[in-house]
């Protein structure tokens, strides 16, 4: 058992000072801490960003949904240094006869402890390692003067990476034997094969980074349901470049201009004729728009969240506890 309480008992048995009171690190983080920014991006379908209709619904649907979940909590302390218990999971839920079921082999989970090895007495480290899967937050490097709270942040990111690894592995498995388009919550996973696959679609719900020039912001605000922007190339040093564009899932009249706005990510048109790419982007957009019902309520992110993603989260919540 790798549950929180088992981990706490293991830590206590190993000689660490147990802590059953810590809040999940995810709740301690301020989501708005990421600075908002406009990211310049190369237009793909036209010289400048434009708006186009995605076309009438044609029954095209994604086949499955992928999402992950993480939880991390301080489970014990070695002096003031936190030992963090993390639990990550990812699941692919495939649609069959309008019901969602877990794709065979599509549920992966991992739990364990994260701590900076240099800051932990060797005996305790060995004991913890014997009891639970243990990851070194210092990544084998020496550490300098670090405020103990800073380990919280590092632990959170380490656990997040573990969750992204699971998502990536599942997306990769899907691409290896695709059975339609996989709807991934968030950007496309950092895997070359996934990022280049025509069978994977990323849908980003938050917009701290906007991939449009400032003079095109009005265009985003005016985007109507059923419309999309033309695509841009989104590049990153940490992953393969992808094509991305915006679409509106729900009418924003009388609401926040970003209400119902999602950003789609898909493989770049690698040798693909421009018209074919545009048709593919339109089709993927229609797939996303088709997922506007049923609403993902009661999740507060329902304007931008597909019901299939909420279903993934509910499954993970159920199996991860």
């Amino acid at each position: 058992m790798n549950g929180f309480h088992a981990a706490r008992r293991a830590c206590e048995a190993a000689g660490a000072h147990p802590d059953a009171t810590g809040r999940p690190l995810e709740l301690q983080r301020d989501a708005s801490a990421e600075p908002p920014r406009l990211v310049p991006a190369e237009a793909l379908e036209s010289d400048v960003l434009r708006v186009r209709a995605a076309g009438p619904a044609d029954g095209a649907l994604v086949s499955a949904f992928l999402d992950g979940r993480q939880e991390s909590r301080v489970v014990a302390h070695a002096g003031l240094v936190p030992i963090v218990w993390g639990h990550v999971g990812a699941v692919v839920r495939q649609r069959s006869d309008r019901r969602l079921v877990t794709w065979p082999g599509g549920l992966r989970m991992r739990a364990g402890l994260w701590a900076p090895r240099p800051a932990i007495p060797p005996g305790l480290w060995s004991a913890l390692q014997a009891a639970q899967p243990l990851t070194d937050l210092a990544d084998g490097e020496a550490i300098g003067d670090v405020h103990p709270f800073a380990w919280h942040d590092r632990a959170y990111h380490a656990v997040q990476e573990a969750r992204e690894d699971l998502e990536r592995s599942l997306a990769d498995a899907w691409v290896a034997a695709p059975a339609g388009v996989l709807y991934v919550d968030g950007g496309l996973p950092k895997a070359e094969r996934v990022a280049r696959s025509l069978d994977v679609l990323g849908v980003v719900k938050t917009h701290r980074s906007l991939y449009v020039p400032s003079d095109a912001l009005g265009l985003l605000a005016g985007l109507a349901v059923g419309e999309r922007t033309t695509a841009v190339r989104v590049t990153s040093a940490r992953r393969t470049a992808v094509a991305s564009w915006y679409a509106r899932r729900h009418d924003a009249r009388g609401r926040d201009p970003l209400f119902g706005l999602v950003r789609l990510e898909a493989a770049l048109p690698d040798g693909e004729p421009p018209a074919a790419f545009t048709a593919r982007a339109d089709r993927l957009t229609r797939m996303v728009l088709a997922e506007a019902a049923p609403l993902a309520l009661p999740d507060p992110r329902w304007p931008v969240m597909a019901y299939g993603i909420r279903d993934c989260e509910e499954v993970l919540r159920a199996v991860m506890g």
């Binding site: 649609r95 019901r99 969602l100 019902a293 279903d311």
Partner: peptide, 9 residues
């Protein structure tokens, strides 16, 4: 209501 691609859990 019946057109939604997915039935609720």
């Amino acid at each position: 209501g019946g057109e939604a691609p997915t039935r609720r859990a």
